[in-house]
Design a protein around this nucleic acid. Structure first.
Lengths: 366, 366
DNA sequence: TATTAGCACTCTTGTATAGTTAGTGCTAAT
DNA sequence: ATTAGCACTAACTATACAAGAGTGCTAATA
């Protein structure tokens, strides 16, 4: 779509004005408050053409224009000027980021917290996600003996997240069995993608257990379930109430659709998963299917350590959000956050990786 | 408050009718549809008296009456007849409960799931909570050596929840130090209430570490934070969208207050904590402070194993909810659920408790 | 030829008015 | 003690009318 200069100018003015005031914008208003040096009549003509192109819409015959989703898309892609954060805003974000660093060492808690902060920062609804397992490898597996019926499964993943699970077995599992099982598990699972762990793969290990094979069969099933459970990404939503203050969400149906989203996060997971690269993703209106009605936009950014995705954070708000400002804040905030997490993980990662990892405590009874 | 028979009868009729139709109930309606054998005029007089007593309210001069919070209270305490679940309903709940049992072994996941099911069952908003730490003891603590900078903290609590936390230490911590630290931790913390673990208590252990004391000081701080983190109860809310279909939540302010509750669960935690006994708790309208406006009610039930609280589950809905039915369902559902969890935990609990628990894996390097 | 002024037209919003309805409160009759 | 009857009240509904904002079109203008 090639737009001449005037069309671009007027489209930008309409979107800017609508973002600011959330009211259909008329030709006279533009003529008065934007220095276009054109008469209302000319602006009207151009607006009419923009409407023909599908970039503007008319709520009814004689109201002002509002941007269509396509209009916002053109605006975001080529019209808006990128927002430069003020030093006040940068200071604010830095302060917020420092909050992240203090005394939280669990990645999921960090990401949940980050979501809270993001929604406070933007006055929108935030969405944040813990690492998608699709890019996570198993590094090592340990089994810690408790007693004949209880042991602890420890899984260290490539993003250095240690997950543990207490496993109870009806049949007795001695230390020797456990030791053997550990070797077998590590032999088959170390360094493979956590998503490729299948039930047949796990059950296939039974044959490798030699004389123990009969005993471990039920345990293997439980281990498979445990790995699957670890595999789940968590999604956090915060600040939905922020949206209710905005005119476009001032109706119960919209509120309902937002709350449904909170209860049912699978849709979000899908959208996140479809955008694996570390970049800014912008879905305007109907471009995403997560919000019904198509009058919300969804902007998010994934961040990674090397090629391993660490998580994602973003916001959902009205189509009429202040894209340039929100994008600037999101970029800056997530950049900071990623640095913090990377720094945190890098240390540990290095520490664990070249170690004589995977020794239990002392043997024998105390 | 002593009410004569007629007052009781009419109050009950008003509440029943309002619960069913959610419309102010007038004298003529009662006369026509409830077999009171009284004329509208008589009913009017009695209603007027009930209003004087603060049991009924008038939205405006000439509308019907609606029950006040006090009215509901009297209704719940002494008027309503307890609802007998139909066999269809019992079957439904049993099926739902079976869902709980399948392949979920983490208590928090069970409870989250239970909340989802509860909201589906009642068409209200559900609230569920994992064990409150206030009644949880530490049974044993284990430290699993990874390498000089990384180890795993394992805490087994009296409700048999095993919590683990990966701890990174900047300073080197050898296996010998860890072994000593484990003994000291167990000596001081085993069998004490997790809430009474204070920072001074933990830091005081430094002196018990003999020659190692310098090394472990920063680690002790981290361990304290970890125990505190374990100490947090999780609260899950589900089905908020159910409420938006109801006339009393058909306005954005109410929706906002609900969503705020979802983002800010501390209030709920307080209410839960104030009711430690295993019994049904009913808060009507202003009796709780969790919902603003005082037109919601909150019903929940805690369930425990012995004197250890395992969690709580409940619903939030309009003051006009069908108390007897909801209570019947909640009682039955939570009873079933508690049984499942107890059964599950009992096994493991027994298994761990009399065991030679707390041995690590093999000693030495592989 | 591109722009603009002028004006009729359209649709929403706000306000005032009146009629309708559902219910009460009071009084007098039973 | 109960009830029938009736005046009264406040919300709801419908209608009409005026005001306002903005368009679309036409004709004038630079």
């Amino acid at each position: 779509m090639e737009l001449n200069d005037r069309k671009r100018q007027i489209l930008k003015a309409v979107v800017d004005s609508y973002i600011e005031r959330c009211e259909p914008v008329g030709s006279k208003y533009l003529a008065d408050y934007y220095k276009l040096d054109l008469s209302p009549a000319t602006i009207r003509n151009t607006m009419s053409e923009l409407e023909q192109l599908g970039l503007l819409e008319h709520p009814y015959t004689s109201a002002g224009r509002i941007p269509s989703s396509l209009g916002y898309r053109v605006y975001v892609d080529s019209l808006m000027q990128s927002y430069r954060l003020s030093s006040r805003e940068i200071r604010e974000i830095n302060e917020i980021n420092e909050n992240l660093n203090i005394k939280i060492t669990r990645l999921d808690k960090i990401i949940e917290r980050a979501g809270k902060l993001m929604s406070a920062l933007t006055s929108l609804m935030s969405v944040s996600m813990t690492p998608k397992s699709s890019s996570v490898n198993i590094v090592k597996i340990d089994l810690v003996f408790f007693d004949l019926n209880n042991f602890l499964l420890v899984i260290v993943t490539s993003v250095n997240i240690v997950k543990t699970k207490h496993i109870y077995s009806r049949t007795d599992i001695g230390e020797d069995v456990l030791e053997h099982l550990k070797k077998v598990l590590n032999g088959s699972l170390a360094d493979i993608d956590i998503n490729s762990v299948s039930l047949p793969l796990i059950l296939g290990m039974e044959t490798m257990m030699g004389s123990y094979s009969g005993i471990v069969s039920p345990v293997l099933k439980v281990i498979y379930e445990a790995i699957r459970e670890i595999n789940e990404a968590e999604i956090y939503i915060d600040g939905a109430a922020n949206l209710f203050d905005m005119p476009e969400y001032n109706d119960i149906e919209k509120a309902k659709s937002l709350v449904n989203l909170m209860d049912n996060k699978d849709k979000l997971l899908n959208v996140f998963s479809q955008s694996p690269e570390e970049r800014l993703n912008i879905y305007i209106g109907e471009e995403n299917s997560i919000t019904s009605g198509g009058d919300s936009s969804f902007i998010f950014k994934t961040f990674s350590l090397g090629d391993k995705i660490l998580g994602a954070i973003g916001v959902i708000g009205p189509k009429r959000m202040d894209y340039s400002k929100i994008i600037a804040k999101l970029e800056y905030f997530s950049g900071n956050m990623a640095d913090i997490i990377k720094q945190e993980l890098d240390e540990k990662y290095a520490a664990i990786d070249d170690s004589k990892f995977m020794q239990g405590g002392k043997s024998g009874n105390e």
